[in-house]
Amino acid sequence: MNEANFAHPVLDAQALGEVPLAVRLLAEDYVLWRDASGMPCAARDRCPHRGTKLSLGRVCEGQIECPYHGWRFDGAGRCTQIPALPSFTPSDSHALSPLRVLQAHGLLWLQLDGGVNLPRFDGEADAKLRKLNVGPYDVATSAPRIVENFLDLAHFGFVHEGWLGDRGHTSLDDYRVQSTATGFVASGCRAWQPQSNRLSTEGSWVDYRYEVMAPYTAVLTKLPQLQDGYRDEIALFVCPVEPEKSRVWFRMAVTDHDSSDEELSAFQHTIFTQDQPVLESQVPRRLPVSGGEVHCAADRSSAAYRRFLLECGISFGIC
């Protein structure tokens, strides 16, 4: 198993309309378009004829047309038309190799190889929770660095002072890390937060639960103790664009039905843009899994994540 066996988010579902769009994943270029029925399709962004980028072309009746010689391909990858030879029936050798496109959590996901399912996000199925995507953010660091930061509680009082933490409450309680069939769970996490969510009016202790179920995906559940019935579930979905470049989305499933989309997005935007310059400053940008950094007991979720990457055979974004 390796990173190619997992589904990866590449695009907001609503962004794909009537024109083809280029995306980049695992240092390769792909093109997405919608067929005549509106279903998303994908292939490598390269015409098999002369290597032209198909994303520079157009979509005609659900088929993607190469901008160079007008060759057309349907959603199954078959070449249906070569304008220079109207009576010629293209063979399988003229076809594209289509990729599986999945739509979930407001995003389009590419599955390059194998049959690993999409990451689970329990908040998606809870009708009581409001759903919202925030992002994407283009970040100049590796996907594993971003996930590891998401799992880290010890930075709250410094990077997010006045929001998710303060310098008077930096000590962490012991927490538990337990392996699962698809990754691991970190539970028993607790942090003092001046403003745990947009509706917070006073500081409170917040219980955190993290779950990692794919190499570049993690989900947290927050339960503020002073806000009865309030619950946040936030998923981090990272597209590994290059070994040291990533695209990030947050999928929020929250109890807050009073705030506007803009207000909820602004809160999450503030938190992540506090993280981003720190993430982009880390050297090396690829996550060291074989030494080179020192650790302490507060880093047990980080240690579990690094082991998980090695167990999954991940090589993209690590060193």
Rank of each mutant, 00 (worst) to 15 (best):
M213L: 06
A235Y: 12
S301C: 02
Q193F: 04
F308T: 14
A181T: 12
L112H: 10
W71R: 06
P48E: 11
D166K: 01
F184T: 12
V19Q: 14
D207S: 13
E65W: 14
E311G: 06
C60D: 15
Y230C: 12
G135M: 04
S259I: 08
L310E: 15
L118G: 08
Y68A: 06
G317I: 03
H160N: 11
E161Y: 00
T89Y: 04
W33V: 13
M1G: 13
L223N: 10
N2A: 09
G62S: 05
E124A: 13
E61N: 08
R247H: 00
Y68C: 03
G183H: 04
D275W: 09
S302E: 08
W109V: 01
G188A: 09
A154S: 15
R307E: 03
G165P: 07
R286H: 02
P20R: 01
G188H: 10
P144V: 07
T89A: 08
R307A: 14
F272L: 14
Q276I: 13
G57T: 09
R176E: 15
V147N: 08
R120E: 15
D138N: 11
Y216F: 15
S196K: 00
R130I: 03
G135E: 02
L99N: 01
P136I: 11
T89P: 01
D113H: 11
G51F: 07
A127W: 05
R100W: 07
R34A: 04
G123K: 06
L236P: 03
M1R: 14
L56Q: 10
M39E: 14
F73K: 01
A43P: 04
C296L: 01
A27R: 04
S179N: 12
R285Y: 05
E148K: 07
G162Y: 11
V159P: 10
S142Y: 09
V116I: 08
F267I: 03
V294F: 14
E65A: 06
I271C: 04
V19G: 02
W205P: 00
R58S: 06
V116R: 15
W192L: 11
A4C: 02
P215H: 01
S259K: 05
E211H: 07
N133I: 06
V177Q: 13
T52L: 09
F88Q: 02
T141W: 10
L112V: 15
E211Y: 12
S315P: 10
D173M: 04
S200G: 08
S302Y: 03
P240W: 00
H257C: 00
F73V: 03
W205F: 14
Y175T: 10
H94N: 14
Q276G: 03
A42M: 08
M1K: 05
